[in-house]
Design a protein around this nucleic acid. Sequence first.
DNA 1: TATTTTTGATTGATCCATCAATCAATAAAA
DNA 2: TTTTATTGATTGATGGATCAATCAAAAATA
Lengths: 200, 200
Amino acid sequence: MPKVGMEPVRRKALVDAALHVIGDQGTLSVTMSDIARQAGVSAALAHHYFGSKEQLLVETVRSLLKQLRDDTVTELRAAATPRDRLSAIVRVSFQADQFAPETIAAWLAFYSEAQRSEETRRFLVIYARRLHSNLVANLKQLCVADDAQRIAEGTAAMIDGLYIRRALGSSPVTAEASIALTDDYITLNLNACQTQKDAA
Amino acid sequence: MPKVGMEPVRRKALVDAALHVIGDQGTLSVTMSDIARQAGVSAALAHHYFGSKEQLLVETVRSLLKQLRDDTVTELRAAATPRDRLSAIVRVSFQADQFAPETIAAWLAFYSEAQRSEETRRFLVIYARRLHSNLVANLKQLCVADDAQRIAEGTAAMIDGLYIRRALGSSPVTAEASIALTDDYITLNLNACQTQKDAA
DNA sequence: TATTTTTGATTGATCCATCAATCAATAAAA
DNA sequence: TTTTATTGATTGATGGATCAATCAAAAATA
């Protein structure tokens, strides 16, 4: 069975497996065996390719982030106006795969891990910054810079908040409802800015 | 030293210690020894009083929630109008002790734990529900029921979101800024509702 | 009051399970 | 035969839980 060129295949399989198991159990204290079993290989092989559990986890956050970024890029390409792009950013955050319970659980676990792992925190900060600057860039074309900053902050918070509330599975927040709430927030703020400008 | 009547004292000390250590390390995988050491007793004693680590953790969430509720009750008593009460609810969430980095880290850890522990989830759901119904009760006196539900959902999400963003320590979200953002959200929505009513 | 009994408080030592990590061995390709 | 892929077995460390044993205060008894 041992075929040459397995490395990239195994690495991907293991990262995907890690995401799956972490999302499923909702914690990073999953074992290497759990992950390896899910990937259909031995725990030893996971160590062989990643060196340590820590490293495998880092690669896993990285992949989560990459997926989000790729989705965003795709959606943004299809949007013409700044206002459309804002909606696109919001929409991506609540897209099917991002909003799946296991994915959210995984994000949550990594947020918690960020308290300890410098590297994990770095990745999550990058995500936060990217979201923020994406929002600001488009908002600036619709209102003054100060407002753009403020609205971006609020929008990002709302997105993250809707995530965490869904993680609890308490309130019946569907993806559509979440998108609507966030989009309304943006609209409401932009209108207010406009009114302000008209008055002047 | 062994005096009778230590039980309540120890229980409180251990719960406080748990909160402290969990907030500090940002994870529930702290050891019983860690907690016991912080409380100045042996790990065995912690087991003696709580039966298991699980149970000690449950008591710890409970205490976190109780503190939040007590603060809310106090603040609400001082608020006269529905609008004031809404601001009071927001203010409490970002009060000094709630917004301390260690407290947020602890909340985050428990949110993650909720994926596994039925009991922890129950507590967090209670918190979410209480926040929501507090908001709705007051919003209903200022706008129609449907809007009240929606605004409450958005407000709660924004509060939770600002929390999680602070946990990352990336964006410079002060308590004051967080309160302002959330309060503005409420004002903006209420104005929109009013405008709508005027038009009709 | 002095003495004995009981009970709550507390801990050190220990057991057992789990897990990350390592290693030596095997098997297939090149 | 050398290299790559792969694993079962093993190890060292860690941590939750248990237990027998202490110690002192309180209560009962003489």
